[in-house]
Design a binder for these strands. Structure first.
Lengths: 195, 195
DNA sequence: CTTTTGTTTAACATTTTTGTCAAACTCAAG
DNA sequence: CTTGAGTTTGACAAAAATGTTAAACAAAAG
């Protein structure tokens, strides 16, 4: 076995991810993916067997990428405030590059029977929730259901990038303006959750 | 001309909206729409000429529904705080019913050359931004770029409903729990923007 | 009751998208 | 250079989705 590895498999997958996550073409055809990658469409079948199989792989990859990101933050033993600053920076950078990744995950969740009982993860999130409650006790952040704290945080980070096309029209801004607004936003979100 | 009006046209459109906005099937086929409406697929073509034409109509409807909602709030001459309370209540109720409506608009914006220079609306939004700035001067809300204020508000309202399936898993909640969390959220958002 | 007109249906045609296969190709190993 | 494995390609087949048409149907108008 020679395992020549021309990189085509990765190229196809990465191109697909770019179409899905960056350009928001959540249901691109195999032809569109192949064209964007500059390869023959048949190679999608050669490497991934079927369109669905490719989508499955990308779906699981995306899920893992997202959860790994969260794990990195949760598991780091920085002080809470540092953690949050870090999270905002890393997550928003990713969101600016791949605004539609979470949407892809969500729309694909319909197709995948998501029975995956992520019990270990649930416990991890519970740990995070407790850490947040502890901060509320300390008075560094406002008291509330800690789930709302996390929901607020991720909403403020992710949504404005998903709705960028709409917002640009509503606010009459061009791409450059909007990117600047999103950079400015990192600081603002931090100040919003730590009043 | 008798104009018999069996209500089929509206039935098809409403069913499509429900699939798109409520169930998140943003690229449902004509067959799926017809099945959900309980009518023959050919009727989609009879009433709307083509699949694209149906999507176009729903797209423009959704755009109008959303903008009308905003107009109602902006144009009402209540005090600012009342306006916001009202907006949160109305918008979140709609978001709970049609969580994917804005996503549909955004994904469809790729297909529609959105040249629509909504200059009149831009002025309206500018008015709103000025009203927000005035409130900041008065000290009722925290000082920031007023665009961030609006973005924060809509993010906190809309995103948790889009990501409901994901959040239910992460937080280990069932549908009922999550609905309760969203109801509770109305008050929380109000308190977050008026600290 | 018959006609007229709008509505609905089934059968068919077309287009789009996906999947398969054998042949051509490429490059490392022998 | 020749062999052989993995890779790429084009032609073809199959499936899915959309669109068209003529005929059947239903209800109001005459």
């Amino acid at each position: 076995m020679t395992a020549r590895d021309t990189g085509t498999e990765q190229l196809i997958k990465n191109t697909a991810k770019n179409l899905f996550f960056a350009e928001g073409k959540l249901h691109a055809t195999t032809q569109e993916i192949a064209d964007a990658a500059g390869v023959n469409r048949t190679l999608v079948n050669y490497y991934f067997r079927s369109r669905d199989a490719l989508f499955d792989q990308v779906f699981h990859d995306a899920q893992k990428e997202l959860l790994d990101l969260l794990d990195d933050v949760i598991d780091s033993d920085m002080p809470f405030k540092e953690k949050m600053k870090n999270l905002i920076d890393v997550f928003m950078n990713q969101a600016m590059q791949f605004p539609y990744r979470e949407l892809f995950i969500i729309t694909e969740m319909n197709r995948h029977d998501v029975i995956e009982s992520k019990i270990a993860r649930v416990e991890k999130v519970n740990g995070m929730l407790q850490e947040i409650e502890a901060e509320m006790e300390k008075g560094t952040i406002r008291k509330m259901n800690p789930r709302h704290f996390l929901i607020n945080l991720f909403s403020m980070m992710a949504y404005p990038l998903v709705t960028a096309p709409l917002n640009k029209i509503i606010f009459n801004m061009n791409d450059q303006d909007y990117t600047a607004l999103m950079e400015e936003r990192k600081k603002l979100i931090f100040e919003t959750i730590f009043p």
